[in-house]
Design a protein around this nucleic acid. Structure first.
Lengths: 209, 209
DNA sequence: GACGATAGTCTTACGGCGTAAGAGACGTCA
DNA sequence: TGACGTCTCTTACGCCGTAAGACTATCGTC
């Protein structure tokens, strides 16, 4: 058999393409192999197991989030949040993964370190700064999950159908809000912006509450 | 074969017990059947498929979150957030599920409706109130995920080990924050409280930003 | 060119999974 | 008794991750 000229990077790239195209549930070692013109077991030469593929995907996504921490901290921290959200929305299938695995890989840690260091230069303590970075990151992940998250391995639930069939007697406020635009992309964006501003507004160096 | 006296409720209760004990990954129809002294296929008489079991688990958890919306809205909304967090931490294995599936089942919708209705009585618009409820809920889920979330089907990553092996030259601020208590239960609690207060403080009726 | 080592790929197999299809056994009531 | 609805089981299919090990292509050295 001729060599396929693979590498860890090519495997991960193919995995990301597959996941973006068909969702996390479609990512199996056999399919990923087929994608690369190779049997499933061949992949194990480049990657210890499937978990390593998933971790690799996460680190790829996280590493792409880079923001230069210059200027007023609220502004670049806001840009940081927006950048995370953009990256997550670009690969929604990765969301459940990013949300449930702590950031431990090199790429993610480096980003966190840079943000925290910049915050300390602004008068935050080391712990305080990291808490702030963490609060922003978890907020973004939580919000984006609600916006675009899907459970791996399960069909998308019929949100639209459920909402339309709501009994206006039983859920009057919900029905009214839906008519007013709840759940639209603009709604998500607006809610994200408002809550993010509230969060950043409420957090300042030395604030104990 | 004698009848086992099952019901949808008993199936769900056994599923929750199994998940709490061994994690989401351990929940298979065969194991769940064994738990109830029955073959896997028998369960399909009470439940259309495995997804329905998962949805049932989520609704069980969500339905237990009830807060009386009386008094100042910031206070009971805060209590709402705390109640969600408590319930999620009581069943951490359910977290990835709750985080990635929209609340569509009856129990969850009823709770949301009640909160939103109470907020409207406080001067919020229907859409605005629901956005607020949603913002709080997604914040709590995001934060709790970071605190206790695990990816279903995968071993817990070795957070402690990774953190201890951090190079102080490369990640000085991270190392300092870890020594100051980053990641401890108290740290999570404190960060949760601070960010929640910031969020609630920043959101008020009619606030456009 | 020959040959061994190394790197890369494949085949086979095992034990798990969700669930479709349908065969039986049980309890109840006519 | 017999029929019928309720409940449970058996069997089977096509997926999954991956352990074990056989095979082959390529390269460095003589």
């Amino acid at each position: 058999m001729p060599r396929a000229g693979l590498s860890r990077e090519k495997v991960l790239a193919a995995a990301l393409a597959l996941v973006d195209r068909e969702g996390i549930a479609a990512l199996s070692m056999r399919k990923l192999g087929a994608e690369l013109g190779v049997e499933a077991m061949t992949l194990y030469y480049y990657v210890p197991n499937k978990d390593a593929v998933l971790d690799g995907l996460i680190d790829m996504a996280v590493s792409r989030v880079t923001v230069e921490p210059v200027g007023p901290w609220r502004e670049w921290l806001r840009a940081f949040a927006v950048a995370i959200r953009r990256e997550l929305l670009a690969h929604p299938a990765l969301l459940p993964l990013v949300a449930t695995r702590p950031v431990l890989a090199p790429g993610g840690l480096a980003t966190v370190e840079r943000m925290a260091a910049a915050l300390r230069a602004e008068g935050f303590g080391a712990l305080e700064g990291l808490q702030l970075v963490n609060a922003v990151a978890t907020f973004v992940v939580g919000h984006t999950l609600a916006e675009a998250g899907r459970t791996p391995g399960h069909d998308d639930p019929d949100v639209a159908g459920t909402m339309e069939s709501l009994d206006p007697e039983e859920h009057p406020v919900l029905v009214e809000a839906l008519r007013a635009g709840l759940g639209t992309p603009e709604d998500h964006q607006e809610r994200f912006d408002r809550a993010l501003d509230a969060l950043l507004h409420g957090l300042a160096p030395g604030t104990s509450l």
